[in-house]
Design a binder for these strands. Structure first.
Lengths: 236, 236
DNA sequence: GTGAAACGCGAGCGATCTCTCGTGTTTGCC
DNA sequence: GGCAAACACGAGAGATCGCTCGCGTTTCAC
């Protein structure tokens, strides 16, 4: 053991440009297969076939099936960090709640429609051990951001309450996302609006008396009654 | 084919009392295994072992693994129909929204904690084909009940809107259920209250001006601010 | 040019899972 | 008591999947 110069990590593998290309190719293929069949049902042979390479080639770049999902999740998390940094970083203490929620939801939805794998891996079923850790990391990071936003909206609230509220918000979003992804066109837009309504109405009493908006006034502004169809100018 | 007296169903199997007992035993074992490992990861041998019988005995009562989950879902659906009939059948046009939602949520939660398998099978991942049909049936039935309740609350709403709202309500509940099941004691009770808050606040603007309750008044009554801890006398 | 290492292949090993089959035991009916 | 059918067993057939291994090809530093 001590004769090994690197105590823990062993990456003496010098990747060539070709190898990096194969890795990207394999991850893309894995995303495709995971999306359609889920993680457990996806076979490594199917991933290799989808990528147009042999099983042996796949295992030259990934030690096992789990590592593929982990690497995929890792890359996804980095892209998500960027997207969610934009979405949640500026707390905007002056913008109305409805706008803030709407903008955040729109960005989340956009990310998930751009990367369908994310949903497949999150709602993935029996993720054996290690993957759950990798996604817990992402989930915790998300919760942290929502907590920060909530704390700035509701300064006088115990941390436990903020954490719980953050979990509820994320749960609402995830449930709504499932509904959004199973619909198309105007119906999808309608569900997006419903997510915003649910979140806004849920958070409205919490932010209470904010800068310039009375409660009743804003409550009446949140698309009264059942949302008719899609609000104008959402994604166009 | 025409020589068979029964055109479609073939159940010439005369079950003895022992057989019925075994079936119940096997379903109970299957519920246990599905709960802990999920559907796909659960092996029929493990189910048989849990039930204390041999694999061959299992296949004397179920043609395949899928049939076990379907039969389990069927029995669960019947119990659920009863429970949800109680919870949603009386629309109670006079009871305040908060109470109606609270009662419905409490019963749903009670059912799910009594039958953890249901959650495992619903959020089950890759349910091969037939099972999804069986659960779609249940899901549709549930949606129908929620639709009926909503239609009575919001008479002047298009069917499409009612359907969408029902889906949103069920989605909220399912998301909340996941949070509830992952917590214990007072924290769990707090999440239950949050589900009620979310649903009540979401539906409040829709039911609009009902019999005797002003909007602002009821809005203020929905546990103002972030819920502190557990409401008194929920499950004790 | 040459040698070492990265890349690529695909048959197949070992493990696992669903489901079958031959055989023996128990139950219900006459 | 006797017989047919239901019940019970457990080894293993058949299929699949994760992953390996031996060998050939390409790339790159020198």
């Amino acid at each position: 053991m001590p004769d090994n110069p690197q105590t823990q990590k062993e990456q003496p593998r010098r990747r060539q440009a070709r190898g990096e290309r194969r890795i990207a190719q394999l991850l893309e293929a894995a995303a495709q297969v995971f999306c359609t069949t889920g993680y457990t049902a996806a076979s490594t042979n199917a991933i290799a076939r989808e990528a147009g390479v042999s099983p042996g080639t796949l295992y030259q770049f990934f030690p096992n099936k789990e590592a593929i999902a982990i690497e995929l999740g890792d890359r996804l998390m980095h892209e998500m960090r960027d997207a969610y940094g934009e979405a949640l970083a500026p707390v905007d203490p002056a913008t109305p709640l409805e706008e803030a929620v709407g903008a955040a939801v729109d960005r989340f939805i956009a990310f998930n429609t751009d990367h369908p794998v994310f949903f497949a891996l999150m709602h993935g079923p029996d993720m054996p051990g290690g993957i759950t850790d990798a996604h817990d990391q992402l989930h915790t990071s998300l919760i942290g951001r929502v907590e920060g936003l909530l704390a700035s909206l509701v300064p006088d609230a115990s941390p436990a309450d903020v954490t719980r509220t953050a979990h509820v918000c994320l749960g609402i979003y995830k449930a709504g996302l499932e509904l959004v992804l199973t619909h198309e066109g105007p119906e999808r837009a309608a569900y997006v609006q419903e997510i915003k309504n649910v979140l806004t109405r849920y958070l409205e009493p919490l932010v209470g008396d904010r800068i310039g908006q009375g409660r009743a006034g804003s409550a009446a502004r949140v698309t009264p009654g059942i949302t008719r169809t899609a609000p104008p100018g959402t994604s166009a």
